[in-house]
Write a protein that binds this DNA or RNA. Structure first.
Length: 196
DNA sequence: AGCGTGATCTTT
DNA sequence: AAGATCACGCTG
């Protein structure tokens, strides 16, 4: 399957959040290790009206990547333990990104199991902190893009509306009302919702 | 239900 | 300089 090209990502964040579902995220590590996962859960973080978005008050040292060209990776560290993987959306100089919250392993499960310290397949990438660990992604990947031989996304058939679920976002305290989380209904790799 | 863990941001 | 917060995962 062909790779998604730069213009695919230059979309309003919420729209990209939905269009990325079902696509195959690929990381190729030295030693020709191919890690592939199907994106099954995403969230939108966008602009100045969304107080949960890192960039809602403007550009800072941490969030500057969110303003860069669409298809750039925004990776940040939180809770003293976890890296979060985002794909930048919107035209350059407009802040927005899609948080990748869960994937279904497609290739490289053995490597992922070693990274995660578990053999339970539905637990390998069923959360945003889990999937960065499974894919060995940390802040060194911040600012890289999806148009090279290390990171890219493969196209896949679009999902139909009745396959996609919508909800509020997980783990935030501001802008709780926005229905900006998208996921594949009945997919066992979608994260368990916290704090219910 | 509680806690570890550290970067970032806000307030003093 | 100090304090609060945090797009989480694990244990119990």
């Amino acid at each position: 399957m062909e790779r998604l090209e730069p213009q695919f990502y230059e979309l309003p964040t919420l729209e990209l959040t939905e269009k990325l579902l079902g696509k195959i995220f690929v990381r190729v590590l030295p030693g020709n290790i191919h890690l592939r996962g199907r994106i099954v859960e995403t969230e939108a973080y966008s602009g100045t009206g969304d107080e949960a978005c890192h960039a809602w008050r403007g550009q800072t040292a941490r969030n500057r990547i969110m303003f860069q060209r669409p298809g750039t990776l925004y990776v940040y560290f939180t809770y003293g333990n976890h890296y979060m993987l985002n794909i930048v959306s919107e035209p350059e100089n407009t802040a927005g990104a899609v948080l990748i919250r869960a994937m279904e392993p497609v290739e490289g499960e053995l490597f992922m199991q070693e990274q995660r310290g578990t053999g339970i397949i539905t637990s390998l990438m069923s959360g945003p902190g889990k999937l960065t660990r499974a894919l060995a992604i940390d802040s060194r990947s911040n600012g890289k893009n999806l148009f090279n031989e290390e990171f890219y996304v493969e196209n896949a058939p679009s999902l139909t509306e009745n396959q996609i679920g919508t909800s509020t976002r997980v783990g935030i305290s501001k802008s709780r009302e926005l229905l900006w989380r998208k996921f594949i209904i009945n997919n066992p790799h979608v994260s368990k919702v916290r704090g219910v």
